[in-house]
């Protein structure tokens, strides 16, 4: 699969403060890439760089096979986007705004406008001016506009902000449908984890301008979700025993007498047997599961240290 977006060692500073630090990432064709990170982590800045609204200080960016220079603009034809929040000409109606969008893109299939408005369930407000739209409605209209010309790549910055639960669900289904039927590549950002985990193939975690981790969701589900907590009398010994008996095991001391084991192949029985044989007393042992949320919070906090 070819790379639709490729960043190499991209950095950006505003007034001496680095907001993006040496970020490299690849987004492949047909993927939904979830961008996860707290507010102000740099998600929007990276998206703006992909759209050439913001120019990187160093590093290179390729989008749809084209190297982005300061004066590149032709590649934008194949990208639909919402950045930060959807912006429209407030005194124009919804329909006029979308029509204007078509004209700027040199796209003259106006029947598509109504089709998209129906798709995002904005029937009956075509002739309403944007002044009177709620945030949720603007967000829907923004999505309609981004998808209007069937772009190969969608860049959606916090697209579910302001949507109600029904809207969020529709949004999710819509994106999955686009990926399935049109092989649209989607870069979507959010600070809400549960929302990303339901649609993304890959999640990139960003904090403080650093891309901390890129993980395939399938892998996290397997690795992170389950672990075993053990309370023992001799922590050091227990660690040494486990390390010796189960090579390459992922263990972590979480307090003076507690160990956490991330593994779903070794059973509780195997562990307790080994520990007891080595003379380590076990006070407590339980299988627990981390939510994905904890997993990401761990990654983010780890990046802070």
């Amino acid at each position: 699969m070819k790379n639709i977006i490729q960043l190499r060692n991209v950095s950006k500073a505003y007034k001496g403060k680095e907001v993006i630090r040496n970020v490299s990432m690849d987004i492949k064709e047909g993927q939904i890439y979830g961008f996860l990170g707290p507010n102000g982590a740099g998600k929007t800045t990276i998206m703006k760089m992909i759209l050439n609204l913001v120019k990187p200080d160093t590093g290179s960016i390729q989008v749809l096979g084209e190297e982005i220079e300061t004066d590149s603009y032709k590649y934008l034809k194949n990208i639909g986007s919402i950045i930060e929040y959807p912006i429209f000409y407030n005194h124009l109606t919804a329909y006029e705004n979308l029509k204007l969008h078509c004209e700027y893109l040199g796209y003259y299939d106006y029947s598509k406008i109504q089709e998209m408005l129906d798709l995002v369930e904005l029937q009956g407000v075509e002739e309403k001016s944007i002044d009177k739209f709620s945030l949720g409605m603007k967000q829907r209209l923004g999505i309609a506009r981004a998808m209007l010309t069937n772009p190969e790549l969608l860049v959606l910055d916090e697209p579910i902000n302001g949507l109600d639960p029904v809207g969020i669900k529709q949004m999710r289904e819509l994106l999955l449908k686009l990926k399935r039927e049109y092989r649209t590549t989607i870069l979507i950002s959010s600070h809400i984890i549960t929302e990303i985990e339901q649609i993304a193939d890959i999640v990139g975690v960003i904090n403080d301008g650093i891309l901390i981790n890129e993980v395939e969701l399938a892998a996290i589900h397997k690795e992170a979700v389950q672990y075993i907590n053990i309370q023992v009398d001799d922590l050091k010994k227990a660690m040494a025993v486990l390390d010796f008996e189960f090579k390459g095991i992922n263990i972590k001391a979480i307090s003076d007498d507690r160990i956490r084991i991330y593994n779903d192949e070794i059973t509780k029985d195997q562990i307790s047997r080994q520990l007891i044989l080595s003379g380590v007393n076990i006070y407590e042992m339980a299988v627990a599961s981390d939510s994905l949320e904890d997993y990401f919070l761990n990654i983010i906090n780890g990046g802070n240290k």
Binding site: L51, N52, F88
Partner: peptide, 11 residues
């Protein structure tokens, strides 16, 4: 709204 304009494939 300049953000809208500058993401069109127009110089």
């Amino acid at each position: 709204t300049i953000k809208n304009l500058f993401i069109y494939p127009i110089s």
